[in-house]
Design a protein around this nucleic acid. Structure first.
Length: 517
RNA sequence: GGCCCGUUCGUCUAGGGGUCUAGGACAUCUCCCUUUCACGGAGGAAACACGGGUUCGAUUCCCGUACGGGCUACCA
């Protein structure tokens, strides 16, 4: 048997990180078994269709390197992969009619208002759980309660109607979930689900079953929100006489808010300041922009690694996994059953780990254009040599590549302001005198490396009866404008003699004068 | 309300009858390194929801309660 899994999102908006995780697990499982991963677009709800969402889904999966073997925009032997197109081919209608002729489905003519009224009425009499089922369908307008003639007439006159699944009462429905084991439901609690809507489109329930059958899907991996309707899906396979074609199901635990109650939603990201979506998304209707991991500077591999660990772990202490390693290690048995609260801090940590693993040359290559753009410089400071040295000084102090500039801009441009606290505490006559002498000493140096600069600095301080610690913070501040930052003499060596002397002289001349005692 | 699924440090989780003085990671705290900050190193604080069973023994199995989550549409 060839393992075939699918990811089947609805194009109703951007794919959120929970969806990406579902796709990831389906992908990992398929790849581990040398099988195929399919992308199917479930666009059966015309009211909720959002332009651009489909493209977004494809781009997001591609960014994450979760590449479908078949699917919308990827082609394949089971085309088409868009349900609206499959509907046009009559696939769903065909299966629905099979269910009708075998007595497992029926036409129903109830109007929305009539259904609402039935619910309201039940509620008024203290019954909260009204559903369309074997107990109530006799009182509704359908092929089981109406005469055959009446039904024929209504259909002939194009009266709006749906097709419902006829669920047999008093049965146990058990299936084995890959994560939860055996799960049992009572058929009395399953309603007569609509299979084909009044607009002729299939509902999710029918459509996914038909497509999974036709696409030879062996394992259906989806979110836990589908668990309550799973018995209806099993019944459809059973009534179709196709139980042997039924995939194994895995219902994934949900991603929960970092704080408070409930599942992770778009609003949490806005409120707590982290992305909920892999890619930035601009709502076409409102023009509202939601941030994305990619645009925030996260590495795709780090994002995927973090996502994989939200609800799954390999049982060892290893946490950094490449996609290939995930493919090798992933199992549904090790997926945790409870919902996982998302922690943005850990997401940052994963990114930091991946940043450390990047090689300096690649980082420098990407850093140079940014420097040129930000500072409009093209001298030695924008060379590969210089960038790589700067990266060396900065690498272990940042979480994201974007921080190289934020935290190291003074390696490329002289400071325009100075830290007031350092001035107040360290700027005095002896310090000014020391700096003037330091300029002379540095001027005479023939080698200007970190070690030489450091030892001559210390020697000069000692000769003048100053503890190096008293002037070091000032020196740093003069060079960078800041009280803290990269290794001081590493910075001195990188800046070079000329720039260091310029910056000292500038400071000595512009800082408020301090009279010598 | 009903149904289903869950419940180990603040968070993600390991462990599934005795090896548990409950392990790791993130976050947090202390110390070391560093005359800065970070990195790194060492250490600390921090959890088996509760109540009944079963058992010689329960964090682990069963039942109940509590709590959390999901579903309860002609949405997926």
């Amino acid at each position: 048997m060839i393992v075939r899994t699918r990811f089947a999102p609805s194009p109703t908006g951007p794919l959120h990180m929970g969806g990406v995780r579902t796709a990831l697990y389906a992908y990992l499982f398929a790849k581990q078994h040398k099988g195929q991963f399919i992308l199917r677009i479930e666009d059966t709800d015309q009211n909720r269709y959002v332009p651009g969402a489909e493209e977004y889904i494809i781009e997001a999966l591609t960014w994450c390197n979760i590449i479908p073997d078949e699917g919308v925009s990827f082609g394949g032997t089971h085309e088409p992969y868009r349900q609206s197109e499959r509907k046009s081919k009559g696939y769903y209608q065909q299966y629905a009619e099979q269910l009708i002729s075998s007595g497992h489905a029926y036409y129903a003519f109830d109007k929305t208002e009539e259904l609402d009224a039935a619910r309201k009425q039940a509620e008024a009499s203290g019954n909260q759980g009204w559903q369309y089922d074997s107990k109530t369908r006799g009182a509704m307008q359908n092929a089981l309660s109406l005469s055959a003639d009446d039904v024929q007439k209504r259909i002939a006159t194009n009266e709006a109607h749906v097709i419902r699944l006829k669920v047999e009462p008093d049965q146990h429905i058990t299936f084995n979930d890959m994560i939860r084991g055996d799960v049992t439901f009572e058929s009395n609690l399953v309603d007569d689900k609509v299979l084909i809507k009044a607009d002729g489109m299939p509902t999710y329930h029918l459509a996914h079953v038909v497509d999974d059958i036709m696409m030879d899907i062996t394992h259906a991996i989806r979110g836990e929100e589908w668990l309550p309707s799973a018995p209806a899906h099993i019944l459809i396979y059973q009534y179709l006489g196709l139980k042997d074609k039924m995939p194994r199901y895995a219902h994934l635990p949900l991603l929960l808010k970092p704080e408070g109650n409930g599942k992770l939603s778009k609003r949490d990201g806005d409120r707590l300041g982290f992305p909920v979506f892999p890619l930035e998304w601009k709502d076409p209707a409102t023009s509202e922009v939601s941030s994305g991991y990619r645009e925030k500077g996260y590495y795709a591999q780090g994002f995927v690694n973090m996502l994989a660990f939200l609800g799954w772990n390999p049982g060892t202490e290893k946490e950094i996994f490449s996609m290939d390693e995930l493919i090798e290690s992933f199992t549904f048995e090790r997926v945790h059953k409870a919902g996982a609260r998302f922690d943005p801090e850990k997401a940052k940590w994963f990114n930091e780990q991946y940043l450390r693993m990047e090689n300096d040359a690649d980082l420098a290559q990407r850093f140079i254009p940014l420097i040129k753009k930000q500072l409009k410089i093209s001298d030695h400071r924008s060379t590969f040599q210089y960038a790589i040295a700067a990266i060396n000084l900065l690498k272990e102090r940042v979480h994201f590549e974007s921080e190289f500039y934020e935290k190291g801009h003074y390696l490329f441009e002289a400071p325009s302001t100075y830290d007031e606290k350092v001035i107040a505490k360290r700027w005095n006559a002896p310090a000014a005198l020391f700096l003037n002498k330091l300029v002379e000493v540095y001027k005479s140096l023939t080698t200007f490396d970190a070690f030489t600069c450091k030892s001559s600095f210390e020697n000069l301080a000692t000769e003048n009866g100053i503890k190096p610690g008293e002037v070091l913070p000032l020196f740093r501040m003069i060079l960078s404008g800041q009280a803290s930052g990269v290794d001081l003499f590493g910075m001195v060596a990188l800046l070079g003699k000329e720039e260091v002397l310029t910056r000292i002289n500038f400071a000595v001349n512009t800082l408020p004068s301090v009279a010598a005692d």
